[in-house]
Design a protein around this nucleic acid. Structure first.
Lengths: 191, 191
DNA sequence: TGCCATATCTGGACATTGACAAGATGCTCC
DNA sequence: GGAGCATCTTGTCAATGTCCAGATATGGCA
């Protein structure tokens, strides 16, 4: 408490960064709020002033993850077909493992947090448009091939990303993630 | 401690059941070992004699889940094609949500536990055979269409099961899980 | 039958954690 | 320059996971 100023300046960002670091090292389940504070160089109660509770911090990490995913998808959304959008999804998940782990782990976030919902919906819109059949409207019956196709596409890339993160699946020697993802998305029936 | 006998009789099973109950109610992240013990009617330290630690208990739940999944798949494995196997996978996940949540949540189990590995491999064999192209051998190059197809099939059903459990996807009114799962697996390109 | 080795379970202890309360510090705007 | 507020700290509390020593039951062996 001597050399450091009383006010951090940008503690919220520093806490988010420390949290992501720790999650990358030890997983989201064993994250300790006090250790996040220690790593950011502040007292154990400081995080409470930026995030209501531990779940609030994780919710913010998840929301940031959805925004990062949205940005990654938007880079390709204009020109790419679903295959390339799916590749982007998988590449995001493997290149931001901590964010993705928080996004997909049940019970870690406040599911109705407005910031989280907005961020997730933003990515969802891009994914839905990317997977949907062009020219189809949204009000179709539930089991129609249109909804089935969107669900299949989303399930496909999400499932692959999860299997990769769990280590249940890994790229072959000399194979990169993009190649693997393309081989998988190619298995989806053509629209 | 008066009416209850000092020795429980089948505490291991009772602890597993209590754990599954609690996970179904509040999710796997907030499971408390002491509360599992309370619900089973034993002291807070009793679980240590049947499971090394909290992770050990969750590992046992996950292993049981994989065995239940294997049994469900085996019921259909003889006659069914991949589509029906995938439907079984999704039905298992939605009808055993607590087990499935532990199986898919990162960092909850001892990943190298022999019992867990054996149980998971048992299910994996059935899934691999179900998704694979008949007559194809295993030593193909990594990105071949054969491996891509297996990965796609596995990713597809796992992803759908996850999306259903998270509530990000739900069957339409009057639609059941099997119908939805069939609509999704139908989107996989024919072998 | 009697007795001991072992498996099973209890109660107490300790460090760590998330959350809360009250006070200290520094910024901002009048 | 002073009031009001956001930011951060210290102190505290109940709950948790894990460890330890001891109590209790069970089964084998004389």
């Amino acid at each position: 408490m001597s050399d450091r100023p009383y006010h951090h300046g940008n503690l919220r960002r520093a806490l988010l960064d420390s949290a992501v670091e720790l999650i990358a090292e030890r997983g989201p389940a064993s994250l300790s709020l006090r250790e996040v504070a220690r790593r950011a160089g502040v007292s154990h109660a400081a995080p409470a002033h930026h995030f209501a509770d531990k779940t609030g911090l994780l919710t913010a990490v998840a929301a940031e993850g959805w925004r990062l995913l949205t940005a990654a998808l938007a880079d390709r959304a204009a020109t790419a077909d679903f295959g390339e959008l799916g590749v982007s999804y998988v590449v995001f998940a493997t290149s931001h493992p901590a964010h993705f782990a928080v996004m997909r782990t049940p019970g870690l976030v406040h599911p109705d947090d407005p910031e989280l919902v907005a961020a997730r919906d933003g990515a969802g819109t891009l994914l839905y448009r990317g997977a949907g059949v062009p020219g189809e409207d949204a009000g179709r019956p539930a089991a129609s091939s249109g909804r089935g196709r969107v669900l299949a596409a989303w399930s496909l890339v999400h499932g692959l990303a999860v299997l990769l993160q769990e280590g249940l699946v890994a790229p072959g020697p000399g194979e990169d993630i993009e190649t693997l993802a393309r081989a998988v998305t190619a298995q989806l029936a053509p629209a």
